[in-house]
């Protein structure tokens, strides 16, 4: 019976594999070869633009004009000096750090509080609130951005780094609530009851017991939101008008307004500076970032 099933499923492969085993082996290694070739080509595609940007950011404009594909004769960091000055890199870096820390503080803490409580309470109210938070994930940012500029002006958060961070809390907290909500289900409920019987206030219980216990998902929330806020462009673009408050992404953008395309050496150095923090973070925390990304996507 089994024999018949098999031959039905494999009318071609089985005889060839059995009769000429050499054919099967070479077919296998051909497959391996193609697979290896595709992966190498894809890797080359992934790294080529980054590599070209780095290599050419170390050359003078003349060298870029003459031979774009060659390595620089002498490695110069003068472009980076210029990039630092043109984009006020340290200042925009500081602004970005303020934005991200403000945003993270709110997203992590408020997200954990809500996620915990909504996950523990089985009432109509908590179900409604949770559904409302989740619903927002379907709203494209572009659909709210116009009115958001008006709301931001009314509540006085427009144009500043802290203000931008506060807006990110509102935009980022639903996803955090969702992740915490799911994770807290795995924290045993008996713990809650024991603590409450011991006379521990619920907020203190949350702070001292629950919050440390959910650290793994906190890491995920921090990673996802840091990447998002660092790389986000459109929200700062419509919120920040004063160049003193530019984020790194915004200060990169001004180079293309002010300079024509022939000053690539300074532009490339700026671009490398802007991508370096996240790329190096990635190389160090690769495992966590990968895990965070999959968790965020599979649960979200």
């Amino acid at each position: 019976m089994m024999e018949r099933d098999q031959s039905f499923a494999q009318p071609f492969v089985r005889p060839s594999a059995a009769v000429v085993s050499g054919y099967s082996v070479s077919f296998y290694s051909l497959f391996e070869g193609i697979s290896y070739f595709i992966l190498l080509a894809a890797t080359l595609m992934a790294l080529f633009p980054i590599g070209m940007a780095i290599v050419n950011s170390l050359k003078t404009d003349g060298e870029i004009m003459n031979n774009i594909l060659a390595f620089p004769a002498v490695i110069r960091f003068s472009n980076y000096k210029q990039a630092f000055e043109l984009t006020h890199f340290l200042r925009s870096m500081m602004n970005t750090v303020v934005v991200i820390s403000t945003g993270l503080a709110g997203i992590v803490f408020f997200g954990a509080m809500s996620g915990y409580k909504l996950s523990r309470t089985r009432s109509r109210l908590s179900g409604f609130l949770f559904g409302m938070f989740i619903m927002s994930m379907l709203i494209p940012f572009h659909s709210i951005m116009i009115t958001l500029t008006r709301v931001a002006r009314i509540v006085h958060v427009q144009g500043t780094s802290v203000g931008l961070g506060l807006i990110y809390i509102g935009l980022g907290v639903p996803m955090a609530i969702f992740l915490y909500h799911g994770f807290i289900k795995s924290v045993p409920r008996e713990l809650d009851e024991a603590a409450l019987i011991d006379g521990c206030g619920e907020f203190r219980f949350f702070l001292t017991i629950v919050f440390p216990l959910v650290a793994p998902i906190t890491v995920t929330v921090i990673i996802l939101n840091t990447l998002w806020m660092w790389n986000d462009f459109l929200l700062p673009l419509i919120m920040i008008t004063d160049s003193d408050n530019y984020t790194v992404m915004l200060s990169t953008n001004i180079l293309f307004g002010q300079y024509s395309n022939n000053d690539w050496s300074a532009i490339l150095a700026t671009l490398v500076l802007a991508m370096l923090p996240m790329v190096s973070l990635y190389l160090f925390l690769q495992k966590y970032i990968m895990k965070g990304i999959t968790e965020g996507a599979l649960k979200g």
Binding site: G106, M132, F133, S136, T147, L148, V151, I169, G170, L171
Partner: peptide, 10 residues
């Protein structure tokens, strides 16, 4: 934060 920066603008 959610109401001010997401729901009201929406």
């Amino acid at each position: 934060f959610y109401v001010i920066f997401v729901l009201i603008p929406a």
